[in-house]
């Protein structure tokens, strides 16, 4: 398992399409070295450690294969960094573009050019800010990662634990979660908690949430969504589920479900007065309430399913899960 941990950690510094091949080659090299030094025996952990240390830190081995110099953002993090930058800028641009187009629709034709320039500059500023913040965050994370992994200072203890395929995260899922959470935060905080609509060329706005009631819990929603974003960035970096991240995901999901239920069921938060001017008020209100109740149920089922998936992965045995649990206990 130590050799697997070593080659798995080397793989984190390599492009996906070369990982498996180089990992196998490194593993073969280690066994050749062990055979040469100790003959054909059952190798002890100390013997394996000695050979691994002689090969060098995972980062230096990967860099030897890639022939690339050190970069300010750790090579391990660069693929994730570019993914997060691209999708965050995309999310921010989409959100600002939507509100920008709606505001442009309400502007007088005389002011259209200046409004359009304003709209473009907002997108540019927000994109630059997002890019700058994400870059600084990743540089700071890299300093920690690089400090541990300099060739003279690395140790066996700093190796990433080999994770079977089953426990590795789906990158697309984490990125989608980050993007949609950012979009949801922008909608909730900047769109006045409402919905824009367009009827016969006239743009209007419906306030769906009662600000007095909702403002009290808005801060909790922002905290939970912020934690969700941080968790998914952490998962992207780690590349695998751990006990702590599974528990964090369960807790965040349950709190999120609790907040959503509170919004739906607590009187005075959802503003049904928007329906007052419509016919069939009672019917519409009933339909709306049933839809919201079913949404809570749907989210509850999704949370229950995710929670069960985590619990099954943590406590119910397969060979791979047993291996992972033993590693977690060490």
């Amino acid at each position: 398992m130590l050799i697997k941990d070593y080659t798995y950690t080397i793989g984190k510094y390599l492009p996906t399409n070369q990982r498996d091949d180089i990992a196998l080659e490194v593993e073969t090299t280690i066994y050749e070295q062990l055979l040469s030094e100790y003959g054909k025996v059952d190798y002890t952990e100390a013997q394996i450690e000695k050979v691994i240390y002689a090969m060098g830190s995972p980062k230096s081995v990967a860099e030897a294969y890639m022939g690339k110099p050190y970069s300010i953002i750790s090579s391990q993090l660069i693929p994730i960094y570019w993914m997060v930058v691209k999708f965050s800028i995309l999310a921010v641009s989409i959100a600002l573009a939507v509100t920008g187009f709606i505001e442009l629709a309400q502007v007088n034709s005389n002011d259209y050019v200046s409004a359009f320039i304003n709209f473009l500059s907002h997108i540019w500023e927000a994109s630059l800010s997002s890019f700058g913040m994400i870059t600084i965050i990743f540089i700071l994370i890299s300093k920690k990662v690089n400090a541990i992994e300099d060739n003279d200072k690395w140790s066996i203890k700093s190796l990433s634990k080999y994770a079977p395929e089953k426990h590795r995260i789906k990158t697309s899922h984490s990125i989608a979660t980050i993007v949609f959470t950012i979009l949801a935060m922008i909608w909730l905080n900047y769109f006045k908690l409402g919905i824009y609509y367009s009827v016969l060329g006239t743009v209007g706005f419906i306030q769906v949430l009662n600000l007095d009631g909702f403002n009290q819990i808005l801060v909790f929603i922002n905290i939970i969504w912020g934690l969700n974003i941080i968790l998914n960035i952490y998962l992207l970096i780690k590349g695998q589920w751990e006990l702590f991240t599974r528990c964090a995901d369960i807790i965040i999901s349950l709190i999120g479900l609790g907040i959503f239920s509170y919004i739906v069921f607590k009187p005075g938060i959802i503003d049904y007065s928007v329906l007052n001017n419509t016919n069939q008020l009672a019917t519409l209100r009933t339909i709306t309430q049933i839809t919201l109740n079913l949404s809570v149920l749907g989210v509850g089922i999704a949370v229950a399913f995710d929670t069960w998936h985590h619990i099954k992965a943590l406590f119910f045995s397969t060979n791979e899960i047993d291996e992972l649990n033993q590693q977690l206990k060490k």
Binding site: I22, E25, T28, T29, E32, S36, G56, V61, A64, Y65
Partner: peptide, 28 residues
């Protein structure tokens, strides 16, 4: 030749080369 046998073959001619140099070179 495999990596380790090549290291030994070159060492026989007093040309020392370490694994982290040889294996990437072979791939290249």
């Amino acid at each position: 030749q495999y990596g380790y046998s090549l290291i030994q073959a070159l060492a026989a001619y007093h040309l020392e080369i370490d694994q982290n140099t040889l294996y990437p070179l072979l791939r290249r």
